[in-house]
Amino acid sequence: MSKHRDIDFFERPAAAREWQAQETALQAAREGRAPASAREAAYRRIDAAIRADDAVGLDADFAERLAAKAGPVPSSATAPEAGFEKQLTRLLLAALVLSGLGVALIEGGSWFHADPAAWSVAGNPWVIALLACLGASQGAEWLRRRLG
């Protein structure tokens, strides 16, 4: 079980300085600059050791063999779980609508008689807030599709 605790670099200036030294060494190694200190040289050795183990132990024809094994890619229309998801979504929506209608039929009379002013959309801040949220959500989705 992991009991890792994150370091708060804002509260630990010594750790923040050491982090900066680690990053400076990495940057210097990428840029081909000579190390400026013994500490930087140590971190560059560590970087070099990590980068040295870069061999990929897969066969040269791994991609081709896998593609042949995998066959055609399922689309969202043909994927088995997509059909189930659509059915379940339709079922849940239908249940929501039916239960909403049921509650309205049973309790609707008492709501109206209790406070006719509650049916006024313009005067009800909660209805306005709901409409604003729906509008923002739909607008964001439309923008996302337009911008791809």
Partner: peptide, 16 residues
């Protein structure tokens, strides 16, 4: 991201 940074920091320090 903070957890990733902590792992990087501690591990590199230990290797040093």
């Amino acid at each position: 991201a903070g957890t990733i940074k902590s792992h990087l920091f501690r591990t590199r320090l230990k290797l040093r």
